[in-house]
Simulated assay, not measured.
Amino acid sequence: MLRAVSLFSNVGIAETYFADLDIHVAVANELVPQRAEFYRHLYPKTNMIVGDITDAKIYSQIITEAKKGPVDFLIATPPCQGMSIAGEMNPYDERNSLVKYAIDAILDLRPTYVLIENVPQQLTTPINYEGTEITIPEYIEKRIGAFYNINAEKVLDTMDYGVPQMRRRAIFLCADKATGINWVFPKKEKHIVTLEEAFAGIPDLWPNIKEKEYRNVLPPNTPEALAFNKWHQPMTHVWRNVECMLYTPTGNTAYDNPVHYPKKTNGERVKGYDTAYHRMFWNKPSSTITTYNFRIGSQNNVHPGSPWKKDENGDMMYTNPRVLTIYELMIVSSLPKDWDIPQWATDNLIRTVIGEGIPPLLIKKLLLQII
């Protein structure tokens, strides 16, 4: 069994398949108490230390507990909101410097293997080191390059490894030089899992409508569809957003609709990027799942849908004018269909942590390179 440490742990999505690999996370750290409690629910045998790693007392506690046994593996997924194109894209966001604490921990614990994961923008993000501004990859190389072999190729797309989601990530794979191992990415897989394959057998769902006067416009969901899975339940959307997606074909944006385009409450056309109010494609993996996966008007969030029927004007309408259900998010994020979500977790919390989590099937396949 490999003894591991997890930093910036979220709810432990990356660790989902560790048990399959005989990896036990002995110590984990998460800032947000609610997420830490979610983690404890999933991994009751892990010593979860809740608090800010930048607090000297919390950091010391992490290191002290980790040193109670050998540390074979360390995984760190520092927050990416400051770098992400779905976030603020501020290169000087203080959260971008949290990687420093991961590197401090690596030097204090000297794990045999290390995996650091973030958005590709990390590779060009500046960070201050000894009074000089350098990129994060240069910073990592300067601090631990003497002790670890670090992979040269650092960007991959999860869809190339059996995950039905297009999600580019920057990943540092580090192996202690004493092992003689150069830990690299696996070969890309030839088969790309599309949504047509991933969603096979999942019943259609109509969204719930917020405004009472529009609640009878769409057909009711069948009892069979609602009973399919506890987490396959429709979200509630405002009618004007549902209406524009009702007339939007698979793989298209409602901005291109001549009549049923995105509107404000006063009927004025909404302006924005053409990735918004956008349906996914059946013949591709899903788009990148973000923390805003509950919004029809955010990036590529809407179910692909299928032709339904023509209205009185002869215009085609399409099914599933809604965002993905939590169950569908689990599928495209490579989480198990019986993922043990705690009963107390809110839909908002679940959607947010899935949007921030790296697909665990990718992590499993990366670790298989060294197991």
Rank of each mutant, 00 (worst) to 15 (best):
S287A: 06
M330E: 10
E213N: 04
N128G: 04
L173H: 08
P262A: 06
N241P: 01
M48L: 15
T135M: 02
T64F: 15
F199V: 12
W282C: 04
K284P: 01
F185A: 04
I341R: 00
A345W: 15
L42A: 07
N252P: 00
G305R: 01
I23W: 00
I289R: 02
M235I: 08
Y277M: 13
P234V: 13
H41E: 00
C174S: 09
P258I: 00
F38H: 08
T77N: 10
L205I: 11
I358A: 08
F294Q: 07
W339N: 01
P258G: 04
A170F: 06
D52W: 04
L366W: 05
H303I: 14
Y59T: 02
Y261F: 15
A146H: 09
E211F: 09
I289K: 00
P336T: 05
H24W: 15
Y255V: 01
I103R: 05
W206S: 01
N320R: 12
S6Y: 11
S334P: 13
D55E: 09
D22W: 08
P111D: 02
C174T: 12
V238C: 12
M48W: 12
V155E: 09
A26S: 13
H237R: 03
H237K: 09
V353M: 06
I371V: 03
E117K: 02
L205S: 08
D340S: 14
V242W: 03
I350Y: 11
V114P: 02
W231G: 05
Y318F: 15
I62V: 15
T253F: 01
Q81R: 11
E88K: 13
A102H: 04
